[in-house]
Design a protein around this nucleic acid. Structure first.
Lengths: 233, 233
DNA sequence: CGAACTGTTGAGAGGCTTCAAGCCTAGTGG
DNA sequence: CCACTAGGCTTGAAGCCTCTCAACAGTTCG
């Protein structure tokens, strides 16, 4: 159930900031802009569901999208968050498979849909684009492999500390060292791969240990190198 | 310490069976053959190590290669096994990063080294090659994401059953339903992400439940749908 | 104001890990 | 050819980390 309201402002649907498109010719970039279609998505909207057939990929120009898989008992496993500058849904599209994840808006967003045909056109005509795309997928694959190792070998405590540091890298802090992404305890648990209660208990331990400060969903970093130590990095 | 003995037989270094190269022109294929260099690798040989800079990728034309990451305390996490028809080391090469995994021969192998320059040449000149490469990486990324979800949500028992089924898919059985890949208990543990002792205990439980039969490292499948049930597939 | 969701805390159970000890097999050297 | 050693395999016992269940407080929202 997608909630597409009015068209987004021009500057919010501008793709010129995307590294991926840096090497396009003027013609190719114009074609891209002509064939894209950008929309506003409200928080809570599902962009696409696991198992659906995709017609294109999306560029995130604003907001935050949660990408997750549904495992046993419908428990979510969060694979990553996409924000301004990221692309989503490209994996299933390129491998010609059904979507293996669900994408849900967790912060009002603007997404630009690029049709499969356009993607194919770019791959066929601009090797630098393909090359760049390859690099993006390969990086994501490394991150996935790293995460497999972590999740298989580290304790929940270590993983939670690591996830917090990861969030810090991907979503800037405000001038008070407070994380600018608001996640529920359950979402944190679904990143770490643990129970909600465990996250709650560990967060309050981190707080006791003066590593972080908590205020509702706001997380403020007090001792980053301490967290690194807990995460065994 | 690479143990490259004599050159492999001609038919063992033939790349024409690789899907990846199916769409090359005759010229491109000749160039590939001219620039490749194939060698025999003995069991136990390290092809490349985590952290090293790679000069090309490898096509596996014979044997089995174990790809793993080294985690806490030097504990291995096996990412995958590569066999005839697979390529390895391409991820780090494409993303221009240092190797994030180690590759070790576990069954005498023949690998063909393709220099980075050749890879780049193909990407620049043959969009179908790039496209195929993209599909390969994307598939591997899906598998990695699937595995993250499994490892985060399933029990060790479920994961072990799943790993056995996975091995069955990737390495044929002989006519007695016996797995044609020989792994130590520790290697199984390093795939599942658990302790060696746990694998041993669970395997003998599977045996008691008449799901498998054990004879040293040989694993014979007796009840595949039963295993599927245990794996929650 | 109640419903629904999120967050918190406690208690109990159990799956896994770790440690330890012994067995088995294969490869080595005398 | 055989004893010997090293590494892999197996089993038992103890303990802890983590999950689950349950009850309740806090918050949001219609």
């Amino acid at each position: 159930m997608r909630t597409t309201t009015k068209r987004p402002a021009e500057e919010e649907s501008n793709l010129s900031g995307f590294q991926l498109f840096k090497k396009l010719t003027e013609d190719e970039f114009n074609r891209l802009n002509y064939e894209k279609s950008c929309s506003l998505y409200k928080k809570g909207t599902i962009v696409y569901r696991e198992g659906s057939r995709l017609t294109g990929f999306y560029c995130v120009t604003k907001g935050i999208v949660k990408i997750f898989k549904t495992g046993i008992d419908g428990k979510e496993q969060i694979i990553r968050f996409a924000k301004r500058g990221d692309i989503i849904a490209y994996r299933s599209l390129l491998s010609q498979e059904l979507a293996c994840t669900t994408a849900k808006i967790i912060d009002d967003a603007v997404l630009c849909h690029i049709p499969y045909q356009t993607l194919l056109y770019l791959i066929q005509n601009n090797w630098q684009f393909s090359h760049h795309m390859l690099q993006i997928v390969c990086r994501e694959l490394r991150e996935a492999n790293d995460y497999i190792t972590d999740i298989a070998q580290k304790t929940v405590r270590e993983r939670l500390a690591e996830v917090l540091l990861l969030l810090k890298e991907n979503f800037e802090l405000d001038n008070q060292n407070t994380l600018q992404i608001s996640l529920t305890r359950e979402e944190l648990a679904n990143m770490v791969g643990t129970a909600t209660e465990s996250v709650i208990r560990l967060l309050s331990e981190f707080k006791q240990d003066k590593l972080i400060e908590l205020q509702g969903r706001k997380i403020k970093f007090l001792n980053i190198s301490g967290l690194r130590k807990v995460a065994s990095i």
